[in-house]
Design a protein around this nucleic acid. Structure first.
Lengths: 359, 359
DNA sequence: CACCATCCTGTGAGCGTTAACATGTCCGCA
DNA sequence: TGCGGACATGTTAACGCTCACAGGATGGTG
């Protein structure tokens, strides 16, 4: 009975070598308590000698668990998604799960549901969807839940577990920081319209201004790219030249802030002496912008950890009602792109209001 | 025999419903030719009605193929690795493969081999290792090849397939561009010592200078981070103040270039009037640096496509000798951080050599 | 000494699929 | 009419594992 030449060893081979049954080998592998230490030792040695590896497919077939989680992401080239993905991967591996990833080029209801289909084909045990856009979040909500799903930045989906960064607190901190510095009001450059994060930051900015009794300027649209930030910077420089009270800007992300800094520089506007700028994300480059950017840092590692935590809970205990909603804090990092308002010797501006430069 | 309540349908269920044997269902699923169109139709309909999904574990168990490829990456938060990963994922999905990823925090021989172990446990069909460091590449070379492996940026590993960007051509283009602009020589800020890319860029820079008969200044060390670029910028500003001929710098990546630009600005050095700067990577922000950065663009999508291509070849046809080595081109993107040398009215510098500002 | 509980180990079945082979049908051609 | 071959389908046996259950020891207790 000349055995196979180089076929990897299977459980039966180990069993034979250790002089036990395949079931005992299985027990050793699965840390069952009822195995004599001596026997366990013999089995482990046989495993080592044969370089035995348990066949994950056979195991998955019978346990109905693949130990694999799917992640659907969009533009993993951006710092935020990339960092979130990294956090997710670390947390998953720690919990003994594999991560299978699908990166989308375009995010539509269709592409999201296709991605989920694709992952379902691989029989993942659960899925994390990084769904920062309204369309993605809606597509997710519309889907039948044959597999546990967690949305990251998934808006206020009422029936899905969601993990997200506290955009509101971040935007509020940014805006208040500028108001506290004595600026009469704060302008805002938004992200793309259908991004939930952009919306949340904008709304919180607006609410903060309103709460402080400060005038609420029209938003300047952007799309996250440095280019759009540059364009927004030119718009604001123009407004300023035309007499508008532009001394402080809260830009919805760091990349746009970079573009804006460049536009201001070209327009001869000094940051922070003449205009203060705050970003959002705290990308590694932000500290070295001209000038170093005051911005809001998001704890992406925590987002990853929590996503995995919520997802595993759901996999193990089934869906809970109401679905959990975890909010991860964001913190303001003050650098050199913001300073007190120096607009003292100026003619009164058009839409003035009682500002409270509180301490 | 009341059938299971909500248990997902299996092949036998489909077979029963379509009035055929499970084997015929299998044939339909696998596009076997010998199925009557009419039968095929009936089977497909049954599949639809039951929302049947083939069980990938069972399939993998018998075919000994998981249709999954592993990717080992390091610091996927950086633009380069993130982009490569994205390219790999796209190409893999197109080819019908799943991607399972392991991101390493630290890259050592141990961590790389652990990652490969981890992926082996998942029975991946092949692995792509993004191994830009010497240690990673060496760990890879030392490993037994029980699974097809492709190294991305894996140095000159003689016995492993490698896909890499033409660092040499990129660095040469950057250096020549500066020499062509009339600069007597070009300084260089390197990446971390054990990164193969850093080494390749440095060597090519040095060779280009030598070929042009230009003096070769000492390299300034860096570690990819903006911070280290800033430090390098201060060093060079100091040298310049001390009379050294610093009019052109080739920085090994864009992030460090950003830090350097900041240092130069603080030192009152105008870029590009007084010093020209070239980066490497062409990150999205580069176009909006102060000033827009001349840099070298790498085609990460092509790297991804080629990695998958080489890996699939190896999986399907077995290892070939010699192992393939694919080099992806890099191209110089000229922006505003470089200009002709204006160092005309200067005292002669110490280490002068016959420069050839050739056309 | 009988009896039950506890520990350790083995036996057999089954997870859902594909591969190999068997069977049956139909057609063309000698 | 008979026969080989292409085609269409069914039957059976793996694939390598875990689960449920069946024992054979061993030890404490009545």
């Amino acid at each position: 009975m000349s055995d196979a030449k180089t076929r990897p060893a299977v459980m039966a081979d180990v069993a034979r070598r250790a002089g036990v049954s395949h079931q005992t080998v299985s027990r050793v592998l699965n840390d069952h308590p009822n195995v004599r230490p001596e026997t366990r030792e013999r089995v482990l040695q046989a495993i080592n000698e044969l370089a035995y590896r348990r066949n994950s497919s056979a195991r998955a077939l019978v346990t109905r668990r693949t130990n694999t989680l799917g992640v659907v992401a969009f533009d993993t080239t951006l710092y935020g998604p990339a960092s979130t993905l990294f956090g997710i991967e670390q947390a998953a591996r720690e919990a003994g799960y594999f991560i299978s990833i699908v990166s989308l080029k375009t995010i539509t209801g269709k592409s999201v549901s296709e991605a989920l289909d694709y992952l379902a084909e691989q029989s993942v045990d659960g899925v994390i969807v990084i769904a920062p856009q309204r369309t993605a979040a809606e597509a997710l909500a519309a889907l039948p839940a044959d597999v546990p799903v967690v949305a990251v930045e998934g808006g206020r989906a009422p029936d899905r577990p969601v993990v997200c960064v506290d955009q509101e607190a971040g935007a509020r901190a940014a805006t208040e920081h500028l108001l506290d510095l004595g600026h009469e009001t704060v302008w805002h450059v938004t992200g793309p319209q259908d991004w939930l994060e952009a919306e949340a930051r904008r709304d919180a900015w607006r609410a903060t201004l309103a709460a402080a009794g400060a005038p609420v300027p029209e938003v300047v649209p952007g799309d996250w790219s440095p280019r759009s930030g540059y364009a927004a910077g030119r718009v604001l420089a123009e407004r300023r030249a035309a007499g508008a009270n532009v001394t402080a800007v809260f830009v919805a992300n760091d990349q746009m802030a970079l573009g804006m800094l460049r536009a201001f520089q070209e327009a001869g506007i000094d940051v922070p002496r003449e205009v203060s700028v705050v970003g959002f994300d705290d990308i590694p480059e932000a500290e070295f912008f001209p000038p170093p950017l005051t911005t809001v840092r998001q704890d992406f590692a925590a987002v990853g950890r929590n996503s995995i935590g919520v997802l595993l809970d759901q996999i193990e205990d089934g869906p809970t009602l109401p679905p959990p909603r975890v909010v991860v804090p964001a913190s303001l990092i003050v650098r050199s792109s913001t300073s007190t308002s120096t607009r003292t010797s100026t003619r009164t501006v058009e839409g003035d209001a009682p500002t409270g430069p509180s301490g």
